[in-house]
Design a binder for these strands. Structure first.
Length: 437
DNA sequence: GCGATCAGCT
DNA sequence: CACAGCTGATCGC
């Protein structure tokens, strides 16, 4: 989201204040340690984790937004050039630690930017968020909703994280003598690991940088970097594939667990999925609603046989997602009743366009809003904030047409090696790394 | 030589 | 598809 005043998760020049929803890399593109474009607002937890991602960042530019409290900042209106106040509130997004949505109010109207979020109506946290939103939107119309449309298609229907966590646990419990590797990212899915640790009364191995994150989040004595004390390891998702799992199985019997909202479907099934976006494949739904199943990845024989045997023994896909599934998105949109919606995930596929699926809810809203406006005009009252909303513009940053560059072998391999080592130093290491180079 | 950024891949 | 993010190549300083 961009405008002459406010950017959310956007880091190009031209805004007066910048908001960060959470610390996942795809929301940080353009942000560096040398940031100097203006004040950066984020949640308290994000601020605490911030120096890991951006060592040397000028922390005086960081402003903490307390959850559930109205804050305000005085900015210059791009249209009139005069001073104008923008109020904003952060609400728990229940995505990864520190993740928040932002609700803005100002001359442009009322805008809610969800960032990445999960809206589990059953959880207690969601109830808190619901109460906050209800209170904040009590007597104001939401003009524009920027929605996490990652899974904005009826195809995506998965259980709550609580249910998915139980599935993970049942997989682990049914393999009492196996090592277990669970694929995770640099941030997120901590609750799943905490749950496993608590129920099984075991520590969980993480890589050193992840341990540092866990400590900053206040989790002590639960995670370890010693492989000898536990059979359960959380490993970076990028180091998690059939090959590494097969490699591990030459040493010890090991299963892999991939917690993901994305269906990890064998390639042989992917065509089917594409053909039926409107009516999702029964197979997928059954997989997720009947509990756990195993899955294989890319069998390199394209489109041929179904699940190629051996992979099945190793990898389990569990629908544990930090993004809202479609029914949750629907409930959320019905709850906040926006006049307009925009997706925050740019996708070449049109099947996740929020307006396509939820436009009806907005149209109903617009119709009733129009009615209200007419009534107000009739009663000679001033028109509400929605008339100003257009000043809160959006510039799409979607980049089209990837250029193919010719690959040339022009630099010495030693340079590549150094770059990789430096990155490892900063960000972490591959887990099943056997080569010390 | 170094850091930033992009394309490609999973 | 692509959750989020690694990797290698290239470019500008």
């Amino acid at each position: 989201m961009e405008s002459g005043m406010v950017s959310v998760d956007g880091w190009t020049a031209g805004s007066q204040v910048y908001f960060l929803t959470h610390l996942h890399a795809d929301h940080l593109s353009g942000l560096t340690s040398k940031w100097s474009r203006g004040p950066l607002y984020c949640s308290r937890i994000t601020a605490r984790l911030f120096p890991i991602k951006f060592p040397g960042f000028d922390l005086s530019l960081l402003h903490i937004v307390e959850i559930g409290q109205w804050h305000s900042v005085s900015l210059l209106s791009p249209s009139s050039g005069s001073s104008t106040t923008v109020s904003f509130m952060a609400i728990d997004a229940q995505h990864c630690p520190g993740a928040v949505m932002y609700l803005f109010r100002g001359e442009f109207g009322c805008t809610l930017y969800t960032g990445d979020f999960r809206w589990e109506s059953t959880s207690e946290r969601a109830q808190t968020g619901r109460t906050m939103l209800l209170k904040a939107l009590k007597d104001v119309q939401l003009d524009l909703l920027y929605l996490d449309n990652t899974y904005c298609n009826p195809t995506y229907c998965f259980p709550s994280r609580e249910v998915a966590a139980r599935q993970v646990l049942s997989i682990i419990s049914s393999h009492p003598n196996h090592d277990v590797v669970i694929a995770v990212d640099t941030l997120g899915k901590e609750n799943l690991l905490l749950y496993i640790s608590r129920v099984l009364k075991t520590k969980i191995w993480v890589w050193p940088e992840r341990l540092q994150t866990m400590h900053l989040l206040g989790f002590h004595d639960i995670f370890t970097t010693k492989t000898s004390v536990t059979r359960i390891r959380a490993v970076p998702r990028y180091s998690f594939n059939i090959e590494t799992l097969e490699g591990l199985n030459t040493m010890r019997p090991t299963i892999g667990i991939m917690p993901s909202g994305l269906p990890w479907v064998p390639k042989a099934f992917r065509g089917m999925e594409k053909l039926s976006l409107e009516s999702p494949p029964l197979l997928l739904h059954n997989r997720w609603h009947t509990g756990v199943t195993t899955s294989s990845t890319s069998s390199k024989t394209n489109g041929g046989s179904l699940i190629s045997g051996r992979h099945d023994h190793y990898i389990y896909t569990v629908p544990y997602s930090d993004h809202s599934c479609f029914p949750e998105l629907q409930k959320f949109v019905e709850f906040v009743k926006p006049i307009n919606i925009k997706g925050i995930v740019s996708s070449s596929a049109c099947n996740v366009d929020p307006l396509y699926h939820f436009g009806g809810i907005c149209r109903i809203q617009q119709a009733s809003e129009l009615l209200c406006q007419r009534l107000r005009i009739k009663r000679s009252e001033k028109v509400g904030v929605i008339d100003m909303k257009s000043s809160f513009g959006c510039t799409s940053t979607m980049q089209l047409g990837r250029k193919k560059r010719k690959r040339q072998i022009s630099r010495a391999a030693i340079h590549v090696s150094r770059v990789r080592l430096l990155r490892r130093e900063r960000q972490g290491v591959k887990i099943v790394d056997t080569d010390p180079d």
